[in-house]
Design a protein around this nucleic acid. Structure first.
Lengths: 224, 224
DNA sequence: GGCGAACCTAAAATCAACCTGAGAATCTGC
DNA sequence: GCAGATTCTCAGGTTGATTTTAGGTTCGCC
């Protein structure tokens, strides 16, 4: 996730950047409105945070010009201007959200998540480990070189493994979580599906593997 | 523009309804969480406003269930709970915005505009994939060579598929999103409509197809 | 080193999930 | 009230994901 931050107060900009970096966002910080427009035009961001009062060009003007260009990037306005009129102006200029200073870091993060979620609802929900990626929307298991569409049971199994990397999951847990208590399937269907998944991981050239630990269960591990 | 308002305090519900009506929104008011779920399933709203503390089912649970069904309707939470933790919970449960009482009418209106605007930006009048185009105004499904006018149910189904290219959509999701919870239609109407759509796509010479993945659902795919 | 239990996997068998044509029931515009 | 469009049920057919089977291999333990 890559964000643009336009905030002219250096100290605050650094604090926000630090918060965002700690939450796995890549952040480009700029310190005036014209720079914001330039960077937004030159790069492909997942969202932007704009202050209103900035040198050269104010945040509302930046916002209006971005929207005038047909860009519907998620944009949050973060400002000290807390009057209702200001909020209305900001939101009607095309902002997705409007947050006033002082703010709680966790609220900023939650609002950024909410704002970008709607946008990228389609590319979301991917689980990763090593060079392998499982897309929960398309059921696709992929590596840089190739990809497979998994069957339902294969998918549920891979999902459970990827949700707990390096953690042991017992055969009984698989049976309970995927087949349910009222299933009369034999215990070894789990072995069969592990076999299927291993075959597909091998075909993808995965650098992770499903490891069996006797009398304990299975776990996803990096290959040595 | 049609909105659902779920707010159990009658006086406040009437005030909000009046404000919204005055701004050309059609409003259905409900007074508990279960009613909210029922009305959301039975109708096609442009947005919803949920209180958190309500009889029978709280607003967060309503929100979670709506999102679990794959519905990305714009939803604003309007509540007296103003703690940062509550905001984070609400936004992470899938809310598009979170506004605390007491609130200014103009801010509520601006936030509703912002929230529904982002949604309808995606909802342009034409949806495309491959050589196929669906016009949401005329219900026409067309290819470069020919076109059909779709029936209502066919259209809704195609719309849902086109809104999520390559994503799997389960039979249950189709039933919930298109037929609603209180429909007594059998599950296999979905199969019948898939069959209708496939026939029309074939007649149009489409280079996309509706693929079934057993025990998982349907998805729109490029033909090999 | 021998034994049994736990795991592996190719291949066959199964059966619910899916497909589709026919037609009944319902709605809609004229 | 009629014609046509739309929505839905039913029934018989097909298929492929799931499961079982069966014959291996590996591992820990005495």
């Amino acid at each position: 996730m890559r964000l643009l931050l336009a905030e002219d107060e250096l100290a605050l900009s650094r604090v926000i950047t630090a918060i965002l970096n700690k939450n796995n966002y890549e952040v480009d910080a700029v310190y005036d409105g014209e720079a914001a427009l330039d960077w937004l035009a030159a790069n492909n961001y997942d969202g932007a945070i704009l202050d209103i009062m900035m040198p050269k060009l104010d945040g509302i003007s930046v916002l209006r010009r971005v929207r005038a260009g047909g860009n519907n990037l998620p944009i949050l306005i973060l400002t000290a201007k807390s009057e209702v009129d200001d909020k209305v102006i900001g939101l009607d200029a095309g902002a997705n959200d409007y947050l006033t200073k002082p703010f709680a870091a966790r609220e900023l993060l939650a609002r950024i998540r909410a704002m970008t979620r709607a946008q990228s609802a389609q590319n979301s929900s991917e689980m990763r480990m090593g060079n392998i990626c499982l897309n929960r929307a398309t059921f696709e298991l992929s590596s840089p070189t190739d990809s497979f569409r998994l069957a339902n049971k294969e998918f549920q199994m891979m999902e459970l493994l990827l949700a707990n990397p390096r953690h042991l999951i017992s055969t009984e847990q698989f049976m309970e979580r995927i087949w349910g208590q009222d299933s009369d399937a034999e215990i070894n269907v789990v072995w069969v599906y592990v076999s299927y998944l291993r075959k597909k991981l091998a075909a993808l050239g995965a650098n992770i593997q499903i490891k069996a630990t006797r009398n304990a269960g299975y776990s996803l591990e990096e290959k040595p």
